[in-house]
Simulated scan of single mutants.
Amino acid sequence: MGYVSVTIVYPFRILADAFSSSINKLPDFYVSNQVESLVELWESVEETDLVLVDADLLKQSCFRDIRKIMASFPGVQIIVIGIVSAPEVLITKGCAGYIDLHRGFDEALHLITRVGRGATGGILSSSKSSSESTLDTLSQRESQTLKLIWDGMTNKEICDFLGVKQQTVSSYVNRLCEKLGVESRNGIFLLSHRLRDKTL
Rank of each mutant, 00 (worst) to 15 (best):
10 Y>R: 06
11 P>C: 05
14 I>S: 12
14 I>N: 09
15 L>W: 04
17 D>T: 03
18 A>D: 08
22 S>H: 05
23 I>M: 04
25 K>Q: 13
26 L>C: 01
27 P>T: 07
31 V>K: 01
37 S>P: 04
38 L>V: 08
40 E>C: 05
46 E>P: 04
50 L>E: 05
53 V>K: 02
55 A>G: 08
56 D>F: 11
59 K>P: 03
59 K>E: 15
62 C>D: 13
63 F>C: 04
67 R>N: 13
67 R>Q: 13
67 R>Y: 13
77 Q>N: 14
78 I>G: 01
80 V>A: 06
80 V>W: 00
81 I>Y: 08
84 V>L: 10
85 S>Y: 10
88 E>W: 05
94 G>F: 14
96 A>K: 12
98 Y>G: 09
98 Y>W: 05
100 D>Y: 10
102 H>K: 14
104 G>L: 11
105 F>P: 06
115 V>L: 08
121 G>W: 03
121 G>T: 03
122 G>E: 07
128 K>M: 13
128 K>G: 06
129 S>V: 01
129 S>Q: 04
138 L>K: 06
141 R>E: 15
142 E>I: 02
143 S>I: 03
144 Q>I: 06
144 Q>W: 06
146 L>C: 04
154 T>E: 12
154 T>S: 15
156 K>P: 00
158 I>R: 01
164 V>P: 05
166 Q>F: 10
167 Q>V: 15
174 N>P: 00
175 R>L: 10
182 V>M: 10
185 R>T: 05
185 R>F: 06
193 H>I: 04
199 T>L: 07
